[in-house]
């Protein structure tokens, strides 16, 4: 899933400093699963913002709505009625950064602000802890590395690791960070594929990655 975390509330307060009435929108997709932008987090942020503004003596009115997904036009359409019938100063989105962009595209005349920082594509390690697993390079080759991704999980995205900074299974950048190449070594060893690790992996073609420009996927059979 896409993992995101809420921006510091101080930053959000600055964004809404001049507003008296805003629509705060959540998303029931990835950000609900990673507990950063679902219905519950929308309620908590709305309450915190209201407390802050009451304290300053200038109350802010916040309507809350959590959409099925903010990355699908059909759900973003559901904001039409509330936006049309209320004089909102702005729409705040608690989706990954796709959400606010969809809202801005659909509702051209209203200010849109992101309340989350989209951090990575990853998964949960345990309840309350998430980590990065994929960098969306667009041409998956993890089967060559014991089904572990060196591009997303090696600090230097090495194709021929582990480098000289690998110590005790940890990366030189932090004792908190596993050396993915150490994990690759252990797994290849268990699978009896260590000989594969002896082969030089040549240059990666990055055209399928962000480096090839913004990407698009088309399924002709589904397209209307």
């Amino acid at each position: 899933m896409v993992v995101a975390e809420q921006k510091p509330i101080e930053e959000i307060l600055v964004m809404v400093a001049d507003f008296n009435k805003v629509l705060l929108t959540g998303c029931k997709g990835c950000v609900t699963v990673c507990c950063s932008g679902g219905q519950k987090e929308v309620g908590i942020l709305a309450s915190a913002l209201k407390i802050a503004r009451k304290k300053e003596g200038r109350e802010i009115e916040i309507d809350e709505i959590t959409l099925e997904r903010q990355c699908d036009p059909e759900y973003v359409d559901q904001l039409e009625e509330p936006i049309a019938s209320n004089k909102y100063d702005a729409v705040l989105s608690m989706a990954c950064s796709v959400g606010p962009q969809y809202i801005a595209k659909r509702y051209e005349d209203i200010l849109v602000y992101p309340c989350l920082n989209t951090t990575f594509i990853g998964g949960a390690l345990e309840h309350g802890v998430w980590a990065e697993f994929c960098q969306a390079c667009g041409s998956c080759g993890i089967h060559n590395f014991g089904a572990l991704c060196p591009i997303a999980r090696c600090a230097k995205s090495l194709m021929n690791g582990p480098c000289g900074g690998s110590a005790g299974g940890k990366c030189e950048i932090s004792p908190e960070t596993d050396c993915v190449w150490h994990l690759i070594y252990e797994r290849m060893s268990r699978l009896g594929q260590l000989d594969k690790m002896g082969n030089v992996v040549m240059f990666k073609d990055w055209t399928s990655s962000r480096d090839g420009g913004p990407r698009k996927m088309v399924r002709e059979d589904l397209k209307q």
Binding site: S157, L158, N160, V201, F203, K204
Partner: peptide, 13 residues
């Protein structure tokens, strides 16, 4: 922003 388009072994190549 770091680059790491290629790694040290590929640089040798």
């Amino acid at each position: 922003k770091n680059v790491f388009d290629i790694d040290s072994i590929q640089l040798i190549a």
